[in-house]
Amino acid sequence: MPYAGTEMSEKPTQGLRHVAFQTEPEKTQRVEYRVIEAIRRGEPVDPSVHASLKDCDGVIEIDSFNLWYGQAQAIYDINMKIPRGEVTALIGPSGCGKSTLLRSINRMNDLIGGVRVDGRMRLNGSPIYAPDVDVIGLRKRLGMVFQKPNPFPMSIYENVVYPLRIDGENRRRVLEEACERSLRSAAIWDEVKDRLKQSALGLSGGQQQRLCIARAIVADPEVLLLDEPCSALDPIATLRIEELITQIAEKYTVLIVTHNMQQAARVSKNTAFMYLGRLVEYGPTADIFQTPALPETEQYVTGRFG
């Protein structure tokens, strides 16, 4: 059964599949939203970051990061480390800055005029926002998949090898090998192996999204940034992509934005909860879903708030 927020609050017993938890109905009535109230008032808050994530081996380290779209601030003072080789989920209500944060990691926000940032972000210890950074090289190390599948209007094959082609790789054998390898990793090889030369626009939405994932991993990036990769897909396609994420997480670090609590619970090792541009709570997924430090986190993941 797909997750639906309102339904959940009416029937809390039909819980999540993997992480089961129970909340007493009477407790929901009088929760004190201490942190959230502070955020709403615009006061700086101290996010609750679980100990295991405070001094982990972070591929990406975010250090008092702020971001403004023109005059409007979208991200406030975020400090977090994305641990290497694990899947980390970003959750939070719509408009809280999850996509913005994700897009600042591979500096996609440079493309938007009037964006201003403050603070530091590091990839393997080297700063992402330094004057001399080669943005193109940076983006090659960070694969990205967008909310809406966006295959290019070319053949399936050309789509997958696009990142290699722009690197000047033109040897046919290399390209074909890479294409097959990443299509297999993206679990779409069997469906498209006979139509590699056909247009990618003829694929279904779910296939297109898996194709985009194949494209994102063909050049062996270090981190995979996924921005709501399943939001345009049906439950079955979603399931396949989730399986896929679990598989490729063995090789890559994955940072995934999602609105689907079940999905976060199923695929991620760590979860970060954001609200109005700030980090609220960040910890191992099991803790966030079962024994969160803050009541508002619990309320949000059970769908009673947000």
């Binding site: 966006n150 290019f152 696009y162 722009i166 690197d167």
Partner: peptide
Amino acid sequence: SMREGSYGCGA
């Protein structure tokens, strides 16, 4: 979205 996809691939 096409452009972003391309930039995202490191073009």
